[in-house]
Design a protein around this nucleic acid. Structure first.
Lengths: 264, 264
DNA sequence: CGAGCGTTTGATCGGTGTCAAGGATCGTGG
DNA sequence: CCACGATCCTTGACACCGATCAAACGCTCG
C-alpha cells in the first residue's frame, strides 16, 4: 500500500527547523521503527481519552486536534500538517485529553513508545529536539488562546490565515501567500470560537476588502501586510532560536532589581 | 530573608504528581544548582522576547504567563503556582514569546540552562518527567482555548475556578473548595477573554446563585457539583497517567497492553 | 488625609449568535 | 451519464450577550 519511498523525512525536516542535528542523529531518526497507516478523510485516529502507547508523525494530509464538550460544542486547538507530531503525551502516558482526526485523507507513521524510551536513554540531542517541538506546540497553543480571547472575528480569521501561511511555507507545502486550505467554514469556526455563518460573513468581508481571495479549498493572501495588520500578527512565536532582538550584548533580565541573591 | 531550608522540593513534588522517580533521581533534582530571587508583586521577571539562558521554578507566590498585543490588549495564558516551571523554552532557546510576572510577591529559583543540558545527557528519566510537565502545560493550555472559545462568561469563570481549585489542591496549597485567589477581577478578565466589568457582574451572579462566595482574595466554592456543571469541568486533563477510566479490571499504569501491534 | 487601585453600578451600543431557508457543489450509485 | 442525497456555502431577520463609557464607592498605603 505504501510506496517504498515513504520514510520519516518530514519529521526530520520539521525538527531541523528548530534544532541542529548531526548526520548520525539524522540517521537514527530515519531508522526509527514505525508502521504506516493510510487514513481516510475525517477519520478519527486518536480518540479522546483512549489508551494507546504510540505517537504519530503526520506524513501527508491535514489533521486537527480538537476537544469536544459535553453539550456537543467543539473547539479545534491545533491544525496539524506534514511533519507534525501527535500523541507524544500518549506515548509517555498512554492517554491524552484531546482527539486527533484527519481533515483530508492522509498518511501517518505510528511510532511505538518504546522507541521514544530508547531515544531518552541514548539520544539526548534528539530528545532535546523533540522536547523543543512540544515547546513550540505550546507557543502556538498560547497564541491561539490570545487569538480567541482578545481579537475580534476579523482579527481571528486573519491571524489564523497568517499562521497557516507561515507554517505551510516552513513545512515546504506552499507559498506563504498562497496555499491549500482544506478546512471547511465549519472547521474554521471551530478553530476561532465563532459560528460558521459568521465565519462566512467575515471571509466575504476580507475578500471584499481585497485582503484575500479564495476559491474551493485554496487561499490566496492578496495583501499580506494588510492582513497581518488587522491580525496583529507577529510571527516570532513560530520561529526558532535565531537571534532574538539583540538590543545589547547579552543583557540579563534588567528588571530584577528587587531580587535578592542567595546561594543555592 | 530566605530561610535556609529553601530548596527545590516544590518542583520535586510537582514532578512526582505525574512521574515516578527513584530516590537517586530525587537527590539529583534537589542537588540542581540554582539561586534564589525574591520578587515583589507585579514584577515582570521574564519579559516577552528577551534573551536569557535559564529557567525558573516558582517556589512561593503566584505568577501569570501572559502575552500582550500591540493595541495594549493582554491575555493571560497560564496561572503559575508553587512548584510550576517557567522559562523552559528560554533555557533551550534563549527566548520565548510570552512574559511571566508575579501577581503576588514570591520566590523563584533560577536554574541555569547548563543544568538542563547535563540532565539531558545523564538523566533520561528526569528529562522524561520534565518533558511530561511541558506536555501537561500544553494540556492546560488547550483547555484554556476551549474555555475561551466555547463557553459563555459564566462557564469560563466557573471553569477557571474549578481548575485552580484542583491544581492548588494537587500542589498542597489549599482545599479544592476553598483557597486563596490573589487575582484581581482585571486579571480574571485577562484570563477569560472578558472585560473587568463583566467579570464583576458574573461573579456576583455566581454568588447570588450560591455557587461560590468570595471575600478579599479568597474563594470558597459552596457548590462544587453545581459549579462544575455550568463549567463543563472534566478534570481528567489535569491528571497524570493513572488508570484512565478504570472501566476494566486492571488499574496499574501498565495499561500498555491496548496498543495496536506494530512491528518495527 | 489624599492618591491610587480595585470594585461596583447604570445606561447604552454593537458584534456575534441564533434560526431558518435556499442555493451550490461534490461524491456516489444506478 | 444522469439522478440524488449529503455536505457545504450563502443570505436575511432578529435577539442577546458582553463591550463600552462614565461615575461613584471603598479599600490600603504612604
Amino acid at each position: 500500500m505504501a510506496s517504498p519511498q515513504v520514510d520519516l523525512t518530514p519529521l526530520l525536516r520539521k525538527l531541523e527547523t528548530h534544532s541542529a542535528l548531526t548526520s548520525a542523529e539524522r540517521d537514527v531518526i530515519l531508522a526509527l521503527p514505525f508502521h504506516l497507516r493510510l487514513l481516510s478523510a475525517s477519520s478519527q485516529f486518536l480518540p479522546q481519552n483512549e489508551v494507546t502507547r504510540q505517537c504519530f508523525v503526520l506524513l501527508d494530509g491535514y489533521a486537527v486536534r480538537s476537544k469536544v464538550l459535553r453539550d456537543g460544542g467543539r473547539q479545534i486547538v491545533t491544525v496539524l500538517m506534514r511533519g507534525d507530531l501527535a500523541g507524544v503525551q500518549r506515548a509517555l502516558f498512554g492517554r491524552a485529553d484531546n482527539a486527533v482526526e484527519m481533515v483530508t485523507k492522509g498518511l501517518v507513521a505510528a511510532i511505538p513508545a518504546t522507541a521514544i524510551d530508547e531515544l531518552l536513554a541514548t539520544q539526548p540531542n534528539i530528545v532535546r529536539a523533540l522536547w523543543s517541538e512540544t515547546l513550540f506546540d505550546g507557543a502556538i497553543q498560547r497564541e491561539w488562546a490570545v487569538n480567541i480571547g482578545r481579537r475580534d472575528a476579523h482579527g481571528r480569521l486573519a491571524h489564523l490565515l497568517c499562521e497557516l501561511g507561515v507554517r505551510l511555507h516552513q513545512a515546504g507545502l506552499g507559498e506563504r501567500e498562497q496555499f491549500d486550505l482544506p478546512l471547511t467554514q465549519n472547521q474554521l469556526a471551530d478553530c476561532t470560537g465563532l459560528t460558521p455563518v459568521h465565519v462566512n460573513r467575515v471571509l466575504q468581508s476580507l475578500r471584499r476588502d481585497g485582503l484575500i481571495s479564495n476559491e474551493l479549498r485554496r487561499v490566496t493572501i492578496e495583501d499580506w501586510a494588510g492582513l497581518a495588520r488587522i491580525a496583529g500578527f507577529d510571527e516570532r512565536y513560530l520561529r526558532g532560536p535565531g537571534p532574538a532582538r539583540r538590543t545589547g550584548p547579552f543583557e540579563l533580565s534588567a528588571t530584577l532589581q528587587g531580587a535578592v541573591d542567595a546561594r543555592g
